[in-house]
Amino acid sequence: MRFEQPKTVNDAVSLLADADGLTRVLAGGTDVLVQLRLGMVEPDLVVDIKAIPGMRDITEENGGFTIGAAVSGAELGEHAKLVAAYPGVVEGMELVGSTQVQGRATLTGNLCNASPAADSVPAMIAADAIATIAGPDGPREVPVADIAIGPGKTSLKKGEIITSFHLPARPANASDAYLRFIPRTEMDIAVASAAVNLTLKEGKVVAAKIVLGAVAPTAVTVPAAADAIIGTALDDASLDAMAKACEAACNPITDKRGTIEFRTKTAGTLAKRAAKIAFARAGGKS
């Protein structure tokens, strides 16, 4: 195994594009190191992107935020303005692993590991986050929703790396929330999860995006669930309709972490609860 710590994006891209054999990009490393240790992967090249200037920065532009690919969960949580604007995105990331893992784990890694249960992904998708990708053919911008294409699989091409994410500026009275279900209070992988991003006007939902995690091969956006609450102040009937729509969108598996039945029911429950939190955060009164 070769270990490289390039100082520029171009060097990182060249290293990865020119490499023979298996490569891994190292940001926080909290998934890559586990895979190495358990012998699940034996990469020929590991490229640490943390020494590249800008990779660890969070910058505010026109009310939106650009988050460097190597920003850790802990750093995200310490950025007061980002937390205020996108509490759901931040809480999703902060649910990944322990305090120790938070010291290193990144949005990029969580996304590129492409686990269906990735905690930071549903809220990123719900927020319409855009990933900026550098590659041998130049940079491109891709919605976060289009990065993971199946368990362990991404749409990134050989030599491509994510360099940052952009979260758009928020209108007034907009917020988000993310909830996951785990058997313990910490340290588990989500059995089901839900992110809700919504905008209010005159006390009613005027825009919403609802994304579920751990209930399908990738995170699932559920437009029908959003439709069920748009135009409402989250009365019980619309929340029930939203939960039903969520359940209908689930396509989970039964495994050691949960059953199809449990994941489906819980996804609806979590969506309801997350919607109420996002609604309150956006200034809504129920």
């Binding site: 270990f3 909290t30 893992v101 290193r104």
Partner: peptide, 8 residues
């Protein structure tokens, strides 16, 4: 704070 097992 980090896990030293998760860092090269």
């Amino acid at each position: 704070l980090v896990c030293s097992c998760l860092m090269l």
